[in-house]
Amino acid sequence: MENVVIKGRGAIPGKASGHALVCPSSITGWGGIDPVSGVIKEYDNVNKGESIKDRILVMPGSKGSNGWSCYFSVTRTSGAAPRGFLFTNVDSSCAVAAVCLKIPTVVDFPSSSDPCLVIENGDYVEMDGGTGEVTITKNPS
């Protein structure tokens, strides 16, 4: 198995690990996910039907309605939260989601190591929200 290490800016400290869910076109705000189950509902999302629960959620940033962070933040109480966030570039909506969920978060990766391009669905990711270091194990069994 191949290990890849990339580094961004640590935004919310803490360590997390899990299988990646990569949404290269993000997930739309207002109704993009079911916050009770964590399942993606967005009609044209490549991961429609997948759940964000216990995943390392990888997105370029936010998309759509200002009602974006709220769908993620209430997963804290429903138990459907992801374990960590990796955002290619921070923006205001994804920053609020990270603050509300209080899960390890790494943002602002250099263009040469965009996590949306480096990481694939199912890769095993270990991340440190303090140092910004992200270790990816490709194609785990």
Binding site: G29, S62, G64, S65, N66, G67, W68, S69, C70, S73, D91, S92, S93, V96, A97, C100
Partner: peptide
Amino acid sequence: SGMTILGNSLWGACCNSDGIEA
């Protein structure tokens, strides 16, 4: 979101998308 982009663009006021909590 419509108010955010309209306020920034048309009226020259200042706003980020933030979110419901913020």
